[in-house]
Design a protein around this nucleic acid. Structure first.
Lengths: 137, 137
DNA sequence: TTAAGTGTAATAAACACAATTACAGTTTTG
DNA sequence: CAAAACTGTAATTGTGTTTATTACACTTAA
C-alpha cells in the first residue's frame, strides 16, 4: 500500500476550489473513493496548515481558507507531512567498516538534495492551476 | 516498512568501489547490516544494469564492472527500479464528479515533474564522488 | 572431490497505511 | 429544547509491501 495522503489532500482541495463552498466529508470521501474518516483526518491536517476552515454540526463541512491562487502544492505537501522521497537507512553501522560508518551522512546529503528538488517543483504549482487544467478536461 | 533498496545498492557499490576487487555477499551483508540473500538479489539487479560482474563458486562474489567515475546514482536508481517519488492514485473515479474524473491525469503530470527533478539530481552525482566524500570522513 | 560461493524459491515476520466501527461533542433548524 | 446532521477522535481490523530467513540446487577454485 502506497501512501496516498498527498494525492487525497490535493483531490480534496481541488473539489473545494471547484465547489467554492462548504462540502461535507461524506461527499468528499465519495469523490476520492475512500472513507469519510480518512478524509476528516486529512482535513485536520489541512486546517492546521491554514489551508481550509471546518465547521462542526449540521450543514457543517470544510471550505477553502484562501484563494486557490495562493495555495501551492508545496503547502499541501507540507500539510500532510509525507515521508522523504528517498528513504534514509536507520540501521546500526558495522563499526569495523569504514564505508558502513560514513555512508549514512553522505546519503543524507543526497536525500536532502532530492527533497529540495521535489519541493521546488511543487512550489511552482498552484491549486488554481490544477483547477484550470481540470476545467479544460 | 520503507523501501531501502536504493540505499542498500549505493552502499554495496561504494564498498565495491573502495575495495577494488571481489567481495562476497556475506561480507557485503555485514557492512549493510542485512541478510546475504537480500544482497544477492540486489546484486542481480545491479548486474542486469551492467554496473557489476558476479562470479559463482569458491572465492566468488561481486566486483565493479566499470570505473566509479562512470557510475551515477541515477544508474543505480534505475537498476533497483524504485517506486515513484509521488505515488499515483489507482482507484476508480466517481463518474458523477468532474474533479474525480480528471484529477488522475493532472496528478500524473505533477508526479512526472517530481520524478524528473529527482532524476536530474541523481544524474549529477557519481559513485566516485561518494567515495571521495567517505574518504574525507 | 570438497569447500565456499552464487542463484532462487518459498515462507514468515515486521511494518505502514487505509478502512471501518463506534461514539462523544457541536451546531443548525424546526 | 429536541432532533438531525455534522465533525473529532480513538480503537481495531484488513491489506499490501518489504525484509528476513530457511532451504537447496548449481557452480567453481583449489
Amino acid at each position: 500500500m502506497v501512501n496516498q495522503q498527498f494525492n487525497f489532500a490535493v483531490h480534496i482541495l481541488t473539489v473545494l476550489a471547484v465547489n467554492r463552498g462548504v462540502v461535507d466529508s461524506q461527499t468528499l470521501a465519495r469523490s476520492v473513493n475512500t472513507n469519510p474518516v480518512v478524509v476528516r483526518r486529512l482535513l485536520l491536517a489541512l486546517r492546521a496548515a491554514g489551508l481550509i476552515e471546518t465547521q462542526a454540526g449540521k450543514n457543517g463541512g470544510a471550505k477553502l481558507a484562501r484563494d486557490p491562487r495562493r495555495i501551492t502544492l508545496l503547502q499541501i505537501y507540507d500539510a500532510v507531512d509525507p515521508r522523504p522521497v528517498l528513504a534514509m537507512n536507520e540501521r546500526k553501522a558495522a563499526r569495523h567498516c569504514f564505508v558502513s560508518c560514513n555512508i549514512k551522512t553522505v546519503m543524507a546529503t543526497v536525500a536532502e538534495g532530492a527533497e529540495t528538488a521535489v519541493r521546488k517543483h511543487l512550489r511552482g504549482i498552484t491549486l488554481h492551476r490544477l483547477q484550470q487544467k481540470i476545467r479544460r478536461g
